[in-house]
Design a protein around this nucleic acid. Structure first.
Lengths: 131, 131
DNA sequence: CTGCGGCCTGGAGTGCACTCCAGGTCAAGG
DNA sequence: CCTTGACCTGGAGTGCACTCCAGGCCGCAG
């Protein structure tokens, strides 16, 4: 039953405090407890959920879709099939993303090797012919 | 000396015509020829450069940095060392990006397996106990 | 000659995901 | 008692990368 301050939650989740507030406002983060002074008190469950949000966000899921997923989670166990479908579709997009990134990374490395050769060649010219 | 219409260039590069115009406006695309009627006439060299831009953009380089790179390319051969440095730094960021994506993709797959088990379990309950 | 489709320009508008701000509350330290 | 710092709220503002629009030009099919 540990609780975390907003600052600690920000540190642990990697979201800024402003982002946490924003996520709560749009319904990505529901039912966050308050202390008597009205401050947010995050639980381990909240932290875990933030981990899920981070995963989805880092893999490029749009906020609107994360909201849809969050709503399904709140709706109960009979949305599990739907949730599974959503995550599977997302996973496909992520794989496509990885493929593209890998491919373009190769292009980049090729370009880098080209410049390495070019720079080395001009250094040789400098050494032999003088500037 | 083949030339390409704007539409053909859009098709080949994967950038919309609007994006091509935008890139020219901000200096990412310089020295694009015009026909007598004032229309853009892209060359093979332009197409190749667009391939470079696509690589950089797909790997998440901000437009501002692409502009800096473009300017160096225009400035001549003595910026090659600088260009190499820029691309190397970018490649490091891309690798970090790939690592993170891979890791979060694993999390996602785990989540999917969790739901697969949950859905299968509830299907079994349905079959045995009735609805 | 007319209409149409593809293209032109400058500039305004859009969508996303935050990020910042003003004005205020509260608990603890000096 | 007073200040300080972390936090609160509602709402405005920001940055990025496009995307769209109005008004107009050109060359060709009908």
């Amino acid at each position: 039953m540990t609780v975390y301050t907003p600052a600690e939650t920000s540190r642990r989740s990697g979201f800024t405090l402003d982002t946490l507030r924003y996520y709560e406002k749009i319904g990505l983060l529901a039912g966050i407890d308050r202390t008597s002074a009205g401050r947010r008190a995050f639980t381990d469950d909240d932290l875990e959920w933030l981990g899920v949000l981070r995963c989805l966000r880092d893999t490029g899921m749009p906020i609107a879709q994360m909201c849809a997923y969050a709503e399904m989670c709140r709706a109960g166990a009979d949305t599990e099939t739907e949730r599974l479908a959503l995550l599977r579709e997302h996973a496909v997009r992520v794989q496509e993303q990885m493929r593209l990134l890998d491919q373009q990374h190769d292009h980049l490395q090729e370009k880098i090797r080209y410049y390495e050769r070019a720079v080395a060649a001009s250094a040789r010219r400098e050494a032999v012919g003088g500037a």
